[in-house]
């Protein structure tokens, strides 16, 4: 029921100008770099798609890519059900709800490097309490040397950091479900599980879509926390895609490679996000499509 009015562009213009400054210029720069070979001090040479080929054939990239995919899907697998479960269990409207919301919000409000630092200190063999805890159980926990420990610590850190986002989104979504639906399900004799399946979940669909999209996009770009916790190691166990990108761009001065990688990186996120988006909004009937 929108009014057709091309003057609406005036409203959008301010936002567009700011975004253009921030998006187009770097975008053009990146495209340029990706098609050239740049060495400091020398004029750039046009190399066509060579950079892209280099990236796609590079083992460092390939391994990191697969690792990243695995990580993002693992994250989603843990954080979404956990987030929904916690949201369902949260008390509504009481001092307990307020306290819970604040505690939930805290991990989200900590600068990402502080998150990394907190977990580093928390898990370091000489500083942290976690190794003590595991040693008491008889397990020799070492986040710096043991690949399994490092990988799972990163996963747990992300779960700690980001599950509250899912919880908060679902909490709000749950609050929007009118009581009558639960009452009807009760009257219809539905078990808790069936109520969840046929009443709760369908009505959480739009909230979960946002949550899943955000988590996928952000986890695929993860950098700071991981860097501070493990530095990418031991070896390449926790070297995800952003790590590779930063190394090439900032450390190695391989701008061509970095630019090509950036474009591939962006493209992958775009495609997978779009796929998620289609699947999630198609199943939800009656939602607005944008």
């Amino acid at each position: 029921m929108s009014i057709r009015n091309n003057r609406a562009w005036l409203f959008v213009l301010p936002a567009l100008l700011v975004m253009a400054l921030n998006a187009f210029i770097p975008f053009i720069t990146v495209i340029n770099y990706s098609l050239q070979d740049i060495l400091p001090g020398l004029p750039a040479i046009d190399v066509g798609l060579e950079n892209f080929q280099t990236v796609l054939k590079d083992d460092l990239f390939r391994n990191a890519f697969v690792r990243q995919l695995g990580f993002s899907f693992l994250i989603l697998l843990i954080e979404v059900p956990l987030g929904v479960a916690i949201a369902l269990a949260l008390p509504k409207k009481s001092w307990r709800a307020t306290v819970s919301l604040i505690v939930l919000g805290l991990p989200l409000l900590i600068p990402w490097n502080v998150v990394g630092i907190i977990w580093r200190v928390f898990t370091r063999s000489d500083l942290g309490i976690v190794p003590l805890f595991f040693n008491a159980l008889g397990y020799d926990y070492n986040v710096a040397l043991n690949p399994v420990d490092a990988y799972w610590t990163v996963v747990i850190m992300d779960v700690w950091h980001w599950t509250p986002l899912i919880v908060l989104l679902c909490y709000a979504g749950l609050n929007a479900i009118p009581d009558a639906f639960y009452q009807a399900a009760e009257i219809d004799g539905a078990s808790s599980w069936r109520t969840f399946l046929y009443v709760t979940l369908p009505r959480l669909r739009s909230v979960l879509t946002i949550g899943i999209l955000l988590r996928f996009m952000d986890s695929f770009r993860i950098y700071t926390e991981v860097f501070l916790l493990t530095g990418g190691g031991p070896g390449t166990t926790t070297t995800f895609l952003s790590d590779v990108l930063v190394r090439k761009a900032v450390g190695g001065f391989e701008f061509g490679y970095a630019a090509a990688l950036s474009l591939i990186y962006f493209f992958v996120i775009l495609v997978i996000s779009y796929a998620f988006f289609l699947v999630l909004t198609n199943v939800s009937s009656g939602s607005r499509t944008r």
Binding site: A8, T29, F220, V246, A249, V250, S262, Y265, I269, R290
Partner: peptide, 27 residues
């Protein structure tokens, strides 16, 4: 309102959140 290219513009806005930050550092 609905205006020429509105859906595309909206989607383009969202895609900006998909780029890894590191991309933008040098530019």
């Amino acid at each position: 309102f609905s205006f020429t290219g509105d859906n595309h513009l909206f989607f383009w806005l969202l895609t900006n959140r998909m780029a890894p930050e590191a991309v933008f550092l040098l530019p």
